[in-house]
């Protein structure tokens, strides 16, 4: 079952839509659940679907379509690096190489201690700050250099 806190948060989102259009809150609901759990399981997606009175398959379609959702166990800190054109031109490759070496993992892998996972991302819409990355989807770091990356990672427990 979804926790009370989760349900309360989803209820807050439901206020944005007509009462007979609960499905509109599915992206928000899955986001809330993922933020609490780290990633989405089939069971969690089914719970979200039930809560919004929608078919499970429709919720699964959403979970698999939007690429900020994680369907496999991610690290405690999921690092997503943009490698699209504006970041690539500002040497995002160096950031990726540095992270791969430092964490000893490739894209879509998790470190042995489960602390970090690494993901390649498409354009994040903040290209003036290239190169950039997000941690756990919601915190963005801009104007990266390998030194700055080291500093950011050191500050995470």
């Amino acid at each position: 079952m979804l926790t009370e806190i989760t349900r309360k948060k989803i209820d807050g989102e439901l206020k944005k839509f007509p009462i007979d259009q609960k499905q509109s809150a599915i992206i928000a609901a899955l986001q809330i659940i993922q933020t609490e759990n780290g990633f989405l399981t089939d069971d969690l997606i089914a719970l979200a679907a039930d809560y919004l009175d929608m078919p499970k398959i429709a919720a699964m379609e959403v979970a698999t379509f939007y690429n900020m959702f994680e369907l496999k166990s991610a690290g405690k800190y999921k690092i997503s690096v943009c490698t699209n054109i504006s970041c690539a031109l500002r040497e995002a490759d160096d950031i990726v190489c540095h992270l791969r070496k430092k964490l000893n993992i490739n894209f879509n892998e998790v470190t042995k201690d489960s602390k970090f996972s690494l993901k390649e991302s498409e354009c994040m819409g903040a290209c003036g700050g290239a190169p950039l990355m997000t941690i756990n989807n919601h915190k963005m770091y801009e104007h990266l250099t390998p030194q700055k990356v080291d500093q950011i990672l050191e500050e995470l427990d």
Partner: peptide, 8 residues
């Protein structure tokens, strides 16, 4: 406000 979750 409505947020997307990663889809160009």
């Amino acid at each position: 406000a409505f947020h997307g979750y990663g889809a160009y």
